[in-house]
Design a protein around this nucleic acid. Structure first.
Length: 483
RNA sequence: GGCGCCGUACCCAAGUGGUUAAGGGAGCAGUCUGCAAAACUGCGAUGCAGCGGUUCGACCCCGCUCGGCGCCUCCA
């Protein structure tokens, strides 16, 4: 049974869906005014994996992830560039799909945009005013936090504490400093929609309430996002949604930890900021980085903890993947002897069970990866003893199916070998040897080895090594190679 | 000021009130090998920031201290 850490209760809880074998989850997506950074990648990945694991566990998952496409920052960016907001949002939605696509993040069931849900948003604001939880002031509408009893339940804050620490100038028109905008009147030139309170646009929080309810109903199972959204965003979502419906909103609130650089949160002001495409494209990195490497790196730490991004950590992810794909390549090679056959099957069974246990425990991906590492080591041992083609296939299939939950191990070995150049979008400045050229060099070299012409054999090894090709000689006199 | 998180070997990183504190990387020593690599074998925290307390027993529970971080304003 899956248990999840619920921010609402501060504990790990057994996960029980509202409907049997059916999960509805909503995750806060991005505001599309700039490229996504690794932090966005982590968040997207965490919930991508949760979704995959729920499906693996037999649930049908209805997954909604929104795009915030009306916002101050978008307007600002559009003005800077002298283009429309739509131009900006279209550009960065496209970029989002490119970047997340490289990371192997699957698309959600629904990916709604705020601008396409104005009717729902306006209706929701209207309901809140009717219920006395919100009030209009000169074209704006504010949510009145004091009218909502449970305000602060998620973030465990008291209204008085918030007030004491308020760092913002208090808007005179608000009845309480923490009241937040549901609807903002728009200035000339800004995107605007007609409403009972005049032309305007929605506040940030209301769109998520409206879209979640529209696509998942008033009460659903899981709501997720980054830790920084706990307050005020998710706190406000709860206030609006529960205030309007009188029902529970989301039952499990899941929040992922930050990606840090040198122990500090990434932020633009600190200048320690890496976008996903920068990581893929940047030439200052010693090696090309693939989506799978980034994925492995991001999953090697439990999702709630902080994660330090570094060159070294990426390298470790690459080394780990190399180890797996080396094994997959060996599994592909012909085998005949059959010694550790029965042990293999039970080893795989144990690994699958351990994997499930790890994932059941609040999506413990580092633990899950450890079980896969253990299996890798076991299969290598069996391989030493000899494995039949059927058993080799069985082993590869096990890695493929468990790996699919994490979005790993889906490539063929030859694709993995090519992956650095291909998946990162770089075509490589050095002349790349075609596979058949390498193969013919290997034939030439092995011929030389047979003749004991080791001088020539080593020349060929060095020739290929200079082009990034590593040769491994097998006991049977043939060789395998990798980039 | 309020709320919260983190501190496990050289590095990354799981974990548990009481058997040997996962796994990976690096390192060292072997097996194998024309060379090389891979793979395999072995070694590696008498201790889990520090100090107290609870307990028959704590790294894991409680308190305090030190160190690092986050949120309270937009933020994954």
């Amino acid at each position: 049974m899956l248990s999840l850490y619920n921010t609402l209760t501060g504990k790990k809880e057994l996960f029980q869906s509202l409907q049997p074998k059916h999960v509805r989850m909503y995750v806060c997506g991005v505001t599309v005014y700039d490229y996504c950074h690794i932090g966005h990648a982590r968040s997207a990945l965490v919930f991508d994996v949760l979704r995959r694991y729920l499906e693996f566990s037999g649930y049908q998952v209805e997954f909604v992830k929104n795009f915030t496409d009306v916002d101050d920052k978008i307007i600002k960016r559009a003005n800077e560039r002298g283009v429309s907001c739509e131009t900006i949002t279209a550009e960065f939605i496209e970029a989002y799909y490119q970047d997340m696509g490289k990371l192997g993040v699957r698309r959600a069931t629904h990916e709604p945009k705020a601008t396409e849900h104005m009717a729902e948003i306006i209706a929701l604001v209207g309901t809140l005013i009717q219920k006395g939880l919100a009030y209009p002031v000169a074209g704006d509408v504010y949510f009145q936090v004091e009218k909502y009893r449970d305000y602060g339940r998620l973030s465990k804050r008291k209204l008085e504490d918030l007030q004491a620490g308020a760092r913002v100038d208090v808007d005179e028109r608000k009845r309480h400093p923490m009241d937040f905008a549901l609807w903002k009147s728009s200035k000339p030139g800004e995107p605007s929609w007609e409403s009972l309170w005049g032309p305007g646009r929605p506040g940030w929080h209301i769109e998520c309430s409206a879209m979640a309810m529209r696509h998942l109903g008033e009460t659903f199972d899981i709501h997720g996002g980054g830790m920084d959204l706990i307050f005020p965003h998710h706190e406000n979502e709860i206030a609006q949604s529960c205030g309007a419906t009188g029902k529970e909103f989301a039952r499990y609130w899941i929040h992922n930890g930050f990606v840090q650089i040198n122990q500090e949160k990434m932020s633009k002001s600190l200048g320690n900021f890496f976008t996903i495409r920068e990581i893929f494209e940047k030439s200052e990195w010693p090696e090309d980085i693939t989506g799978e490497m980034l994925r492995y790196f991001l999953l090697a730490t439990q999702y709630r903890g902080p994660l330090d991004f570094s060159d070294r950590a990426i390298k470790e992810a690459k080394q780990a993947l190399d180890g797996f794909y080396d094994l997959f390549q060996r599994l592909h090679e012909v085998g005949d002897r059959a010694a550790g056959e029965s042990e293999l099957a039970s080893g795989i069974d144990r690994a699958q069970e351990a994997f499930r246990q790890a994932m059941d425990d609040d999506v413990n991906t580092p633990m899950a990866l450890a079980t896969l590492q253990k299996l890798r080591s076991d299969v290598n041992k069996f391989l030493e003893q000899g494995l039949s083609p059927e058993k080799r296939k069985l082993a590869r299939t096990a890695f493929r199916s468990l790996g699919a939950v994490l979005g790993l191990f889906q490539l063929e070995t030859w694709q993995f070998k090519l992956a650095p150049g291909v998946l990162s979008g770089r075509d490589g400045s050095q002349a790349v040897l075609a596979d058949h050229d390498i193969e013919s060099k290997l034939v030439e070299r092995n011929e030389a080895r047979k003749q004991k012409d080791f001088k020539k054999a080593d020349e060929i090894r060095h020739f290929l090594a200079a082009r990034g090709i590593v040769i491994e000689d097998k006991p049977d006199g043939t060789s395998r190679w990798k980039r």
